[in-house]
């Protein structure tokens, strides 16, 4: 059923029960987000960027996990929403190696887009940079390379992998700030579909997952 909601005092028509974040994005209202993908039944709601204020709710809520209802009144840029978004973004950037010059994501990088939208710098302002345990580039996969220093832990690679293959060929592993992507140690090209697929590489928004081929052609890969 089509319903009407209001976002920043603008009326929008939407199918009842759709994700609020999707409705906003589809209607040209940008809300910062990293982990949401269309068609997710239960979005991970883990990047903590897509907060909005909804009339009647005590606290800001992540819009990806909210389903639209008739008459809902949404505000995407209240001070407390911005406060949380700035904070989440600063935290993400404090654990992200900012090296745009040699990064393959270039203009497509969502972090740049978010920093512009939130009108804050890429570099953290209150806190220093923190490392994630062992920061060596992971090379134990026959065709994939993982760089935890860039990874924003959005989990899109896991989602797409499971969607395509019905199972996971990579996983989250580790705890706290050391948590990152790990491969299961399958190294047999014959049994894993990765070389033919590379969907995870394509979907990675920050070029933390690369195929060997792409890596070798990147400024970083070719210089080392």
């Amino acid at each position: 059923m089509m319903i009407i909601i209001s976002v920043d005092d603008k009326e929008i028509q939407a199918e009842e029960g759709t994700s609020l974040l999707k409705v906003c994005l589809d209607n040209g209202i940008y809300i910062p987000n990293l982990c949401y993908m269309e068609g997710m039944e239960t979005p991970p709601s883990s990047c903590r960027l897509c907060f909005v204020d909804i009339d009647g709710e005590k606290n800001p809520v992540p819009s990806c996990s909210v389903k639209v209802r008739e008459g809902m009144k949404v505000f995407t840029n209240t001070p407390r929403v911005r406060g949380l978004q700035w904070s989440a973004f600063e935290l993400i950037m404090s654990n992200h190696r900012i090296d745009c010059g040699s990064c393959l994501s270039r203009k497509a990088c969502p972090l740049i887009k978010i920093s512009r939208h939130l009108k804050i710098r890429l570099k953290p302002f209150r806190v220093g940079h923190i490392n994630s345990g062992n920061e060596d580039i992971v090379e134990d996969h026959p065709c994939l390379i993982y760089d935890i220093t860039k990874c924003v832990r959005c989990g899109k690679c896991l989602h797409i992998c499971e969607k395509i293959h019905g199972r996971l060929y990579l996983t989250f592993a580790g705890r706290g700030v050391d948590m990152g992507i790990s491969f299961f140690g399958d190294s047999d090209d014959e049994t894993i579909p990765c070389a033919r697929c590379l969907a995870c590489v394509k979907i990675c928004p920050v070029s933390a997952l690369l195929s060997y081929e792409r890596y070798e052609h990147s400024p970083e890969g070719s210089s080392s």
Partner: peptide, 22 residues
């Protein structure tokens, strides 16, 4: 908490690490 954080969400994964560092 930092050691036991599952690392899924930004605030807990990175935020508690900053608290710990400070």
């Amino acid at each position: 908490t930092q050691r036991e954080s599952c690392g899924k969400c930004t605030f807990c994964r990175i935020g508690t690490k900053h608290l710990l560092t400070i």
